[in-house]
């Protein structure tokens, strides 16, 4: 009987600890929203850049703009999440506040998830603005469930990618510069502005290794009501990319502080 009671107590403790960890993730993300979302690097790379680029494409070719919406939305996702990650992680690395978070009972995984959630929420706000603008102004009728699913998983993927790159340097400007390499590479190779099918064969194969390709593909499927199977595969592949970015980011955080 005592053994059973002990196990029940242990299970309750585990559940409490799990809930505490999740609460911690939430509070870190909310604090990041208050503290960092209006920092200049987040505004310039996360808000102004995707909005300016979207506007530039609209002004150049308003007639065929609807076709570009999935690509520009994907670009908003990658720039907003990664720009926010560079701010929420590198400001804290420089000021030593990230270390303060690690002194609390939260695990390193929870602290990192809190940071990833901070980038995710920033990206979600920006993506929602651009998507709502496109849907209302252009009268598009996307598959909203598909759009939400592909956007949410993509926001997590690129927020994790931002965390991984940001943790490998110290300063915000270093992180933004480093992140420009994958960001621009993907913008040009993943179908944001040029269709992947128009690229040389070698680059087409290479684009299959980049997560933004599946975001653009999934968004196109949602906006233009393509087959559900395509979207399902995109979601699965993006989930694999999420793990691929998240696990090394946790490892990198552990290595930095041990």
């Amino acid at each position: 009987m005592a053994k059973v009671m002990g196990k029940v107590r242990e299970k309750m403790m585990e559940k409490m600890m799990w809930q505490d960890q999740m609460r911690g993730v939430y509070h870190i993300a909310i604090k990041d929203m208050k503290t960092y979302y209006l920092k200049p690097p987040a505004i310039s790379w996360g808000m102004v850049f995707p909005l300016a680029w979207t506007l530039a494409f609209y002004l150049r070719n308003p007639g065929d703009f609807a076709e570009l919406v999935p690509g520009l939305l994907a670009m908003t996702i990658i720039f907003s999440t990664t720009a926010a990650e560079a701010v929420v992680i590198n400001f804290e690395l420089r000021l030593g506040t990230l270390e303060r978070l690690l002194l609390t009972p939260l695990s390193m995984t929870s602290v990192l998830l809190g940071k990833v959630l901070g980038g995710f929420l920033f990206g979600l706000m920006m993506t929602a603005i651009v998507a709502a603008g496109a849907v209302i102004y252009l009268g598009l009728q996307p598959d909203f469930v598909g759009l939400a699913l592909i956007s949410l998983i993509s926001l997590m993927v690129f927020s994790s990618m931002g965390a991984l790159f940001s943790l490998s340097v110290r300063e915000v400007f270093e992180a933004q510069t480093l992140l420009n390499l994958p960001r621009f590479l993907m913008v040009f190779l993943c179908g944001v502005v040029y269709p992947v099918s128009a690229l040389p064969e070698g680059l087409q194969l290479f684009s299959r290794l980049l997560p933004l390709t599946y975001t653009v593909q999934g968004l196109k499927a949602s906006f233009f009501q393509e087959q559900g199977a395509v979207l399902a595969w995109d979601l699965i592949i993006l989930f694999l990319f999420l793990i691929l970015f998240l696990l090394p980011a946790i490892r990198l955080l552990q290595r930095r502080f041990s």
Binding site: K31, K34, T35, Y36, L95, G96, T97, E99, R100, L103
Partner: peptide, 11 residues
């Protein structure tokens, strides 16, 4: 209490 006062300036 770490050797630097590392709370959040913006809060």
């Amino acid at each position: 209490v770490p050797d630097s006062s590392n709370l959040y300036d913006e809060l």
